[in-house]
């Protein structure tokens, strides 16, 4: 068509590069943007629905733990085995189930809700916007979930028959934070990878891998987050002497790491979290999501 302008050759273009970014490099801008997202998400979080969910997250496991504790006969309350059982129960209910499910609900749909809510485009057209959004919402999810876990632990521990309540409280609280970080990163990655039925996929993953594989007496259980968290629990709560630790059935079946301290497992959990999060951050900028109707 005669009206078209003549295409200019790229070689004819000069000065095509833009001026230096006045707002700093990639990492600096990301670090500047993430607090903005956290602040925004937190301000949105203090709404009746979220507070109600938070209260449910606290009340149900707390009520369950205290009601079970009241069923224990008085003579068994100081028993080593009872201590271990209640430590395990507290661990299973709080860092394992509560934290995992809460992170599943909060971290899995980070991308999906943005696409569904037609707001993905706004972060997409901002440099590091997607990463800032993912990181910001991840940290808010971690904050809410670990807070809920620590509150449940803090309320429940005084009512439970535990020989070392303070140590148990500290360990379980730490496990809540570690579990939030690790499961949050895992579910955020699943949310970045899958655009449809992300909650179902996350739930199936949690059930099959963290629920079943983690309890198989095989090397494969070492690939799960639950294995690492459980190992910290066994080292720091209930089985604090090496004799008790080595003689435990779970330890003998290879379902708990035999490191002399729990610190190695903490490093493992943090490394897994950082690795999963790094992959999610890389993918979220790379994947071309189907949101064409948005534009």
């Amino acid at each position: 068509m005669s009206l078209k302008t003549t295409p200019t050759k790229f070689s004819e273009l000069s000065g095509t590069t833009n001026s230096k970014n006045p707002l700093g490099g990639s990492l600096v801008r990301l670090l500047k943007a993430v607090p903005g997202v956290i602040e925004y998400e937190l301000s949105r979080s203090f709404k009746p629905a979220r507070i109600a969910m938070f209260l449910m997250m606290i009340l149900i496991p707390t009520a369950l733990l205290i009601s079970v504790a009241y069923q224990v006969p008085e003579q068994l309350k100081n028993d080593q085995q009872t201590n271990l059982v209640f430590s395990m129960l507290l661990y299973a209910l709080v860092p394992q189930i509560l934290t995992m499910l809460a992170m599943l609900v909060l971290a899995s749909p980070i991308v999906h809700t943005e696409i569904e809510g037609q707001s993905w485009i706004y972060s997409l057209v901002r440099y590091q916007g997607r990463r800032a959004l993912l990181l910001g919402r991840y940290f808010v999810a971690v904050l809410w979930t670990s807070c809920a876990g620590v509150v449940v632990t803090s309320i429940s521990v005084p009512f439970l028959p535990l020989n070392q309540p303070l140590q148990t409280w500290g360990t379980i609280s730490l496990l809540c934070i570690l579990a939030s970080l690790a499961y949050g990163a895992l579910f955020a990655l699943i949310g970045v990878l899958f655009q449809k039925r992300v909650m179902v996929i996350s739930f199936l993953y949690a059930l099959v891998v963290e629920g079943v594989l983690a309890w198989l007496p095989a090397v494969i259980n070492q690939l799960t987050i639950a294995y690492r968290l459980r190992s910290i629990l066994f080292r720091w709560v209930g089985l604090d002497s090496d004799r008790l630790f080595q003689s435990n059935e779970l330890v003998q079946n290879g379902m708990v790491a035999t490191d002399p301290t729990g610190w190695v497992q903490i490093v493992w959990v943090l490394a897994i979290s950082a690795g999963l999060l790094a992959i999610a951050l890389w993918l979220v900028e790379t994947i071309q999501y189907s949101f064409q109707s948005e534009l």
Binding site: R29, V37, Y122, Y127
Partner: peptide, 15 residues
């Protein structure tokens, strides 16, 4: 305003 502040901060601007 909250929404705009978020999107501007996403561009790397200070609060």
């Amino acid at each position: 305003k909250q929404w705009l502040v978020l999107l501007i901060r996403m561009c790397g601007w200070s609060k």
